[in-house]
Nucleic acid binder design. Structure first.
Lengths: 191, 191, 191, 191
DNA sequence: CATGAATGAGTTTTCATTCAT
DNA sequence: TATGAATGAAAACTCATTCAT
């Protein structure tokens, strides 16, 4: 009697609205009723889906940190050369950031002082997986023998810096730019 | 009846207190009375020195962004080789971040959605100066001919990533680490 | 798919759940959805049986105030001596409070600022009936000639105080205790 | 330059306003802004004096439970006869309830489910002191050898019942009524 | 100039009630 | 008739800012 209203799912609508606002104005800079209004629901409704504002931001963080890690690592070409693996990682990062610019901004351009244990655990597990890739490449003597954490911090930091430059309008995120950036950063870490 | 240190300068005390709190909890996560209390002044007094909370954070941003730019660029060895100049820039960044970790965290680890024009202008003028260095090095064919903004975004992003890794405890900011990082990033951008 | 007990009567289930919660946490301290959940029905269902939260608490009050009055007065031994009648009343009060401790607590240990006219009328009619007993005993010169309302207030207040002492853990409601209390209070009012 | 405005003290004004409203409508039935408005202050001001609504009600409870205990026990005539001591206690209770009817109603006519440890301790220490009086009278064989807690529950309950009767309009709190009540209750407990 | 109590609009959150299913 | 998601007004509480002292 009622054609599927385009409400997909209120929980999802709330998550999407929150993402946009948190990415733009930060967690503390965004009021719950603003999120609710942007999601097209009443303020009280938000609390049927999330126990608190903090629970909401953690759910958001876990959803997208998980998506990012999954995008980076699912079906990772474990048998390829380090150079090829690096290309793959950088390319996947670029694709994720191109398709989900607000999500990436939310994840990486903000200082998250309110994360719960589950969120922190997810963060750390991602680090571990990447560390494995770095150490394997080092074992194959295809990557400089610096501390794995240092290499990861520099490479990931460089990528985030690139995205920040795009967000601020200094750069435009194109395949060519990504490719150039990849080449530079590979030079930084190759043997 | 009053044993506080000679009240150096209340404005300065407020700026220092605000810096610590903003770096830790962010702008919106910090209450003005907290800042005042931490500075050892009354809440009303803060408003004699700053028109609003936003004016305070902008003053802080300009103070330290200016200090950072000044640290990077004053007496810059314009006649040295690009490699030497890069070393100098990286070393100065490292020294600044080592001496002023909270200031650096405030400047670079937060998303500043409240900056006024003066702050934005300062940000941009810093970029211009660094761009000049990159372009000169490229003119000397000592640095790859990529877009200057790309090189700056990657290098500065890598440095910020390094500091974030230190802030999160994955790394420890030592001269050796800085030196290793410098070497890697130079490889990224040298011809 | 549904193993709840034969849903006796939803109205009754709601009343029972409300009683427990109102007795424990008070009317304003209890949320309607909590009552519904405790009764095993949906929140909306409650409103099929009671027009509002106030209607619910008044129905509850009337149900149990009525039950208490009925327990006190049905088949009252009108021909017995005043002493015997007092014994009967005290004993019936004790039995009611023993069998229905939460009901008694709800009725007498809370300040009911929301009673409607029907509830107040019930309260008053109970008073009238007891007043008759007192006045008859006084006419027979078996009870002191104080104001009937005074005697009732003291005796009933003493009983409530006894129950409050039990609820707080100072006393334990045993037949022996009730009997001792009865004896003391009879001494208070006998000629 | 400004003659002492009749604000006595805002903390006191808040306590007084809260007392009236809590006595009438109960703790959960009273909204904080109502208390503030009745006290003639802004809602936020209340929180400068009390950390929370619960802290307010506990402060109120302790203030008046303390006043009641003090009224009962300060300069207690320890050398008088038990009968005389009972008269004194009853009289003091009556005077307190006459002078502070709302305070007494707040203390004794509500179910306080939110008391903190300090409040509970105060309650218990009052009980202990009164218990001492009962036990001494029993030792002198001037009071029936029932459990002290029972005697206290009945006598105090009777007094509360009397006040409840007055609050509901059945009785009027006069010296004569108090005196009559005292005589009845003494008969209950004397040997 | 400095203070800090006071403000009241704004925040997060709750809850009595409704209504589409 | 029963449901329970949705509502939105109201609750408790916070905080940027003001102003009398």
């Amino acid at each position: 009697m009622k054609f599927r209203e385009p409400v997909r799912d209120k929980r999802q609508a709330i998550l999407e609205a929150a993402l946009v606002l948190f990415a733009e104005r930060g967690f503390h800079g965004t009021a719950v009723p603003e999120v609710a209004a942007a999601a097209g629901v009443a303020a009280g409704t938000l609390y049927r889906y999330f126990a608190s504002k903090e629970a909401l931001v953690n759910a958001l963080y876990q959803q997208w940190k998980g998506a990012l890690l999954s995008a980076l690592l699912s079906d990772f070409p474990v048998d390829e050369s380090p150079r090829q693996q690096f290309h793959e990682l950088w390319h996947r990062l670029g694709r994720f950031a191109t398709r989900h610019p607000q999500e990436f901004a939310f994840l990486e351009l903000h200082h998250h002082a309110y994360l719960d244990e589950a969120s922190l655990k997810m963060e750390q597990s991602g680090m571990q997986l990447l560390k494995g890739f770095v150490e394997q490449a080092q074992a194959e003597q295809a990557m400089r023998p610096a501390r794995a954490e240092l290499i990861m911090a520099l490479v990931y930091g460089a990528f985030v810096g690139l995205l920040k430059g795009c967000a601020q309008g200094y750069l435009k995120l194109t395949p060519a730019l990504l490719s150039a950036a990849e080449q530079l950063m590979w030079e930084a870490i190759r043997v």
